[in-house]
Amino acid sequence: MLFRPNPSLGVPIYLQLMEQVKHAIETGALRPGEQLPGIRPLAEELVINVNTIAKAYRELEHEGVIELRHGSGAYVSENARAGKLAERLRAAQSVVAGAVERLRARGVNDEEIRRLFEAELAGLTRKGGRRG
């Protein structure tokens, strides 16, 4: 299910692995609560360093994508989707912050900015809404 990272890409292998795991979760190949392959067997299978896999798993745990249960292994977090969602929201938030800053710089005040946003969202809904 996880395939061999390409060492010559210039992207560190552990990052490639992390991307693969996240992609697997997104596409449903790995479901919340499901166990990930063990570090050692995975290292043998992919023929990459055991420390690299350990690092990838550690970083994924740090991001909340997986859980490392002592003695048991690595499992996809229940809120892995939520993790992804949280990431999306964080990215969205910076877009909004940037837009607000630029509008303020043009002299638009906060009340007007709020009305512009609401109008925009309302307008999308009336047009049959691409986003629910």
């Binding site: 570090i39 050692r40 290292a43 043998e44 023929v47 055991v50």
Partner: peptide
């Protein structure tokens, strides 16, 4: 070559 690398990785892992 891959066999050799795999043996090395396995040895270090275990």
């Amino acid at each position: 070559a891959e066999d050799v690398l795999q043996a090395l990785v396995a040895q270090v892992a275990n």
